[in-house]
Amino acid sequence: MSDIENREPDEGQEEEIERIPAMQHLLDNPFLLLFIGIAMPTVFYIVWGIMEIISIPMAQ
């Protein structure tokens, strides 16, 4: 490694704080991904089931 990479910032220089993107926060959290992976299919299947029940014609 070169000296430039290992140098500490001078007293007059401020460290740049790098913003972490929201999508990276989402993808770095395995429990949130697990919740989304279980919740989203559940919601879609419930909505699909309700649509199927509503589309059944009434018996006369």
Rank of each mutant, 00 (worst) to 15 (best):
L32C: 01
M23C: 10
P41K: 07
G12D: 14
P57W: 04
P9Y: 08
E16C: 01
L27I: 11
D28A: 15
I36D: 00
D28M: 05
I53M: 01
D10P: 03
V47A: 13
G49H: 03
I54T: 07
E18W: 01
D10N: 11
F44H: 04
G49L: 05
I56C: 04
Y45G: 04
F35S: 07
S55C: 11
M40R: 01
I17R: 06
D28I: 00
I46K: 01
F44D: 04
D28W: 03
L34H: 08
M51G: 12
I53K: 03
E11R: 06
R7W: 02
I20L: 12
F31N: 11
M58R: 07
M23Q: 10
V43I: 15
V43R: 03
F44M: 11
Q24E: 15
I46D: 01
Y45W: 06
A22T: 13
Q13G: 03
I53S: 02
G49K: 06
D28H: 10
S55G: 12
I53N: 00
P57C: 00
E11D: 09
P21E: 07
I56A: 02
P30R: 00
L32W: 07
P9D: 04
L26M: 12
A59M: 05
F35N: 01
P41W: 07
R7M: 08
D28G: 11
L33C: 15
E16L: 01
E11T: 09
N6Q: 09
H25C: 07
I56F: 03
D10L: 15
G49N: 08
E52M: 04
A22Y: 14
I50G: 02
D28T: 08
V43T: 10
E16T: 03
L27K: 13
I54W: 07
E11G: 06
E14L: 14
I50L: 09
E18P: 00
G49T: 11
H25E: 05
E15S: 09
M23W: 15
L33N: 11
E8P: 01
I53H: 00
